[in-house]
């Protein structure tokens, strides 16, 4: 698995992902007629949610790598 680079941490990325997440979770966006089928809506929300968790995981991993515990070398 490729090692996450430093671009995965930092407040700018957090703000960007927040705005994208807010857009994807916004009511007008997914209340359009095409999304009205309950199954689709359900899948859409959970897939976006999983994607957001993946981004959070990458960011957390980068943050942890950049701040190793005391006495432990950065790998």
């Amino acid at each position: 698995m490729p090692r996450p680079t430093r671009k995965w941490n930092g407040p700018a990325l957090g703000v960007l992902v927040f705005l994208v997440g807010l857009l994807l979770f916004s009511w007008p966006f997914w209340s359009a007629p095409a999304y009205r089928a309950p199954g689709f809506l359900f899948v859409f929300l959970f897939v976006v949610w999983i994607g957001l968790i993946l981004v959070l995981w990458l960011m957390a991993r980068a943050e942890l790598r950049s701040s190793p515990p005391p006495g432990q070398e950065e790998d």
Partner: peptide, 13 residues
């Protein structure tokens, strides 16, 4: 639950 997930983006700070 989606709100806290979005909020988590700023938890580290």
């Amino acid at each position: 639950y989606l709100g806290p997930t979005l909020g988590m983006l700023f938890w580290w700070v």
